[in-house]
């Protein structure tokens, strides 16, 4: 993984001074940590959304999801 991968995960240029002092292994770990955090965040929101509408009947649930999105 390279600086480009970290940039892609952040959606912005990472601080240049920071990147310059990281070796490949560290850069790889950091990029992986950001990616994992984003995945966890997405899953947590998916779960919360599912829980929020789960008490409703299935048809209403589907319609509500469409409206909310």
């Amino acid at each position: 993984m390279s600086e480009d991968d970290l940039r892609a995960e952040l959606g912005a240029d990472p601080p240049p001074g920071l990147v310059a002092q990281l070796d490949t292994g560290a850069l790889e770990h950091l990029t992986g940590a950001v990616r994992a955090a984003k995945t966890r965040q997405r899953e947590a929101l998916d779960r919360a959304e599912r829980n929020a509408v789960s008490p409703l009947p299935r048809l209403v649930r589907k319609a509500l999801r469409t409206v909310l999105r």
Partner: peptide
Amino acid sequence: DLRRLRDQVTDV
């Protein structure tokens, strides 16, 4: 730099 990185992660 660490603060900036943390802000970037929070934003994303």
